[in-house]
Design a protein around this nucleic acid. Sequence first.
DNA 1: CGACCATTTGATATGGATCAAGCGATGTGG
DNA 2: CCACATCGCTTGATCCATATCAAATGGTCG
Lengths: 231, 231
Amino acid sequence: MLTQTTASNRVSSRQPEGRNGRPVAPAPVATLSNSIELMGAPMPFARNAEIYGENEPAEYLYKVLSGTVRTYKVLNDGRRQIGAFYLPGDIFGLEIGEEHTFSAEAIVDCKVLVVKRSALVSLAGRDNEVARQLWTMTAGELQRAQDHIMLLIKTAQERVAGFLLEMARRSAASTEVDLPMSRQDIADYLGLTIETVSRTLTQLENSAAIAVPTSRRIVLRNRAALSRLNA
Amino acid sequence: MLTQTTASNRVSSRQPEGRNGRPVAPAPVATLSNSIELMGAPMPFARNAEIYGENEPAEYLYKVLSGTVRTYKVLNDGRRQIGAFYLPGDIFGLEIGEEHTFSAEAIVDCKVLVVKRSALVSLAGRDNEVARQLWTMTAGELQRAQDHIMLLIKTAQERVAGFLLEMARRSAASTEVDLPMSRQDIADYLGLTIETVSRTLTQLENSAAIAVPTSRRIVLRNRAALSRLNA
DNA sequence: CGACCATTTGATATGGATCAAGCGATGTGG
DNA sequence: CCACATCGCTTGATCCATATCAAATGGTCG
């Protein structure tokens, strides 16, 4: 139950990103993703293993094959903020600076494709399409970060509802979510405490918006109610 | 924050590279900024005038010549979140999607250089350097958004201190800040209320970290103390 | 079975929101 | 030039959502 998905679903239909239609020109398929497939080396990471650390040189780009990755930052007093969760098919680690601004860890045992940044960047220099897609990908991350900002100004109910809807959207089975991350991870993503996350889930369950058959499995029972909370 | 050139230097000397020449580019000057200068049309916006609205087609890119611009989103219940403030020299409006995801307004009377996105994108298709800089610029916005996220999980004091330090860093006079925006704007940027912003400034003043000669002018008296708050 | 860890639930505390005045600067019409 | 309205800001009193502290529960694995 911990290992949420197998490598098989990495071919899932999910797009690199994008809520509303990006100008991803349907014709030229994921050239970048393909390049990564071709150039990358698959690499396993054990549960909780560090993939890279904040302030390390950003030499590589990563694509999740199986498992889930979290990126995060820790403030000097210990507070941790999770920047994002990356599911199979997602690409992460594409800072443009010389150093990573977040750390990355495997939430569960993961397989990750690793590709040298310099190789991609130089490919981008020759191939406009690749360049465009690197840009698009960064813009997708920007969109995600902006959505995250909007989440952080909301009430606990709204944050949790928004989180569940986001996870559902990104999962294959859109009405049932199998959460790979702990309550603590969710709390640190939403800027709440585990207790508040837990209580909020209970409330949502009591109001019949969701069901929680096991702590890691959430059934969206009333999507309309959740969307309403999503402000 | 993207390209921190002052409005005055826009007239600055020429381009080292021939326009029609191929990527000369040993000295990677601000080609993009320069292109915007060359291709853009200066346009005035009155205080509080809308520059573009959320969900409008993102046809243009903008560079602040003078004044200050805010981008924001309004939730359906009226809560407003300010995404960023743009000062002279900053470029904004570079969503990659077809539509703006934020609205933009002039905070004070502004002059803004406006350039067609399509023109820049097509230029980027021909000029790798321009393409790279569009990417860099988007990555810069991403960085800003991530910093914003980190700000939003902090206490009121930390948020306000962080905001003041950020504004000081971006202003010429780094020890004294002349805020172009209202308390309400600051509050909506920091995810606080005007009352809390006001009270926090008073506290910081009482603890001798800052002075507030007039409500729009803040003197950083003890930068170390502010940085300490900045976690 | 027993230890451990994640999660839930309960009791209480508190930072910031909300509600409500007050105040000072700026501008306007008489 | 002054009375007064307006607006942005500050200050005060109270409330409330979420944090914090604490304990119980439940699932997992040796």
